[in-house]
């Protein structure tokens, strides 16, 4: 019997490593390394002033200190912008979740038997696919001083003069929230529908036989069973909301009008970045990273405890 000592084993393990290598190489080059550089930069003074480049000089935590130092009017920009971001997110997210939950229940109800579901789903999901900057530009033109909305208001005689929607915090924030709502409630509806359809139908039948009415069934059966996917949806929406950029950027032309009350965290970051102030943009990124990190940890924890319970 011939014996070849050199190769005694058949193994495919190396192929697994080869196949996942491109992902990790690309991740390291295009994400991880830039992230590290971002964080590293946060501790340096590095910006452009006219044509001269200042830095990089190590400044320790000075960038962070200046982020949290109140300006002449006593406002701390980063807190204001974080507040703006969260507030506008909440204004859009509350109707988004409530309407999505309602629609999901309507669509999955075997008693209501809603017709034309395919059409409605296609319609409510469509804004999600639309280019946010174009959608925002469209809103800008519609609500501008000479736009159709003002034309209608005047034609109807609802107001004496032109309403400048972009001079009032409440209307600009309202438009941003409305756009975010329109762009995301369809997506949430579809996710929640999948969640409801994942619940064993016999649960609803049992509740029905036990004498629960529709409202009781909803609050006692559907909602508790839907909690995991609801929590997941809310938290991922919140992480997405923190990254709000395209809509307010284009709508307000990057200024966060009026008076920076619609300026978001990422718009702030963008301002530093387009000004090539890598020190300050790094510091803002670190804040963004920490905030999302905390939210993600909460997501993972809530998902884990739920999977353990199950």
């Amino acid at each position: 019997m011939k014996e070849k000592k050199e190769k005694r084993h058949v193994s495919y393990a190396k192929w697994g490593l080869i196949f996942i290598a491109p992902f990790f190489i690309a991740y390291i080059i295009f994400s991880l390394a830039p992230q590290i550089i971002t964080i590293y930069n946060a501790f340096f003074e590095n910006y452009r002033s006219g044509l001269t480049i200042v830095g990089p000089n190590f400044v320790g935590l000075r960038n962070f200190v200046s982020l949290f130092t109140p300006d002449a009017n006593g406002t701390i920009d980063i807190l204001k912008y974080t507040g703006n971001t969260l507030l506008m997110w909440v204004e859009g997210a509350i109707p988004q979740i409530v309407i999505a939950l309602l629609l999901a229940i309507f669509f999955t109800s075997y008693r209501l038997k809603i017709k034309g579901q395919g059409f409605f789903k296609a319609v409510i999901y469509m804004p999600n696919m639309i280019m946010a900057s174009a959608f925002s530009m469209l809103f800008f033109t519609l609500f501008s001083n000479v736009g159709p909305v003002n034309q209608v208001i005047q034609a109807m005689g609802w107001a004496d003069a032109t309403i400048d929607f972009f001079s009032m915090t409440v209307t600009v924030r309202g438009m941003i929230a409305l756009m975010n709502f329109l762009m995301w409630f369809g997506n949430t509806t579809i996710l929640l529908m999948a969640g409801i359809m994942g619940i064993d139908q016999s649960m609803f039948e049992a509740a029905n036989i036990d004498g629960a009415n529709s409202l009781q069934t909803f609050f006692r059966v559907t909602l508790p069973l839907l909690k995991p996917i609801l929590v997941y949806t809310i938290i991922t929406a919140m992480i997405g909301g923190l990254q709000m950029f395209d809509v307010p950027q284009v709508l307000t032309n990057g200024f966060g009008v009026p008076n920076r009350t619609t300026m978001t965290l990422v718009m702030y970051l963008n301002n530093f970045l387009s000004g090539k102030n890598y020190g300050m943009s790094g510091a803002v990124s670190v804040i963004l990273f920490i905030v999302t990190g905390i939210l993600s940890l909460i997501t993972f924890r809530s998902l884990r405890t739920q999977s353990e319970e199950a």
Partner: peptide, 13 residues
């Protein structure tokens, strides 16, 4: 493992 007296342990399928 031998197939026709040839050691097959490290041979691909």
């Amino acid at each position: 493992l031998y197939i026709d007296d040839e050691l097959m342990n490290g041979v691909a399928p």
